[in-house]
């Protein structure tokens, strides 16, 4: 089958989840107890909102990830043709990797790879 049929898998997934949820709403009981609808916080009424500015430790990781992920995108086509191109490709990737490696080393030494 061709890749258009990905739509099919998408639809099958939607049908599976949607159908089950729909089915469940028909047969499952429903209660009116308002306490039940509270978000879980170990049995204590929640204080404050969960959606506040939250110190995410992976901001820097996300940036480094971006660099490396783009790199992976470039690497795959290289990997495919590596066999045919030979030495030239190898030298090029050496240069590419040394730049990347230096970047990683720089981030490492700067302490960017530290979860705060």
């Amino acid at each position: 089958m061709s890749s258009e049929s990905l739509i099919l898998f998408f639809i099958v997934g939607v049908i599976l989840v949607g159908g089950a949820v729909l089915f469940s709403t028909f047969i499952a009981p429903s209660s009116k107890n308002p306490v039940k609808f509270e978000p879980y916080e170990c049995g204590i009424a929640t204080s404050g909102n969960a959606w506040i500015q939250f110190n995410v430790g992976y901001y820097l990781f996300a940036i480094i990830y971006l660099i490396f992920d783009v790199e992976t995108v470039f690497l795959f086509p290289w990997g495919v043709v590596m066999k045919e191109v030979g030495l030239q490709a190898f030298v090029e990737i050496l240069i590419f990797f040394s730049v990347l490696g230096l970047g990683l080393l720089y981030a490492w030494k700067k302490g960017a790879l530290k979860w705060v």
Partner: peptide, 26 residues
């Protein structure tokens, strides 16, 4: 889900998947 536990879990998951994606790819 507006729950603090969920949010922390999701944040962790984000950082984790983002990082390990690279190793899987390489």
């Amino acid at each position: 889900s507006n729950s603090k536990y969920s949010l922390i879990g999701a944040m962790r998951s984000g950082a984790q998947v983002v990082s390990y994606e690279l190793s899987v790819g390489l």
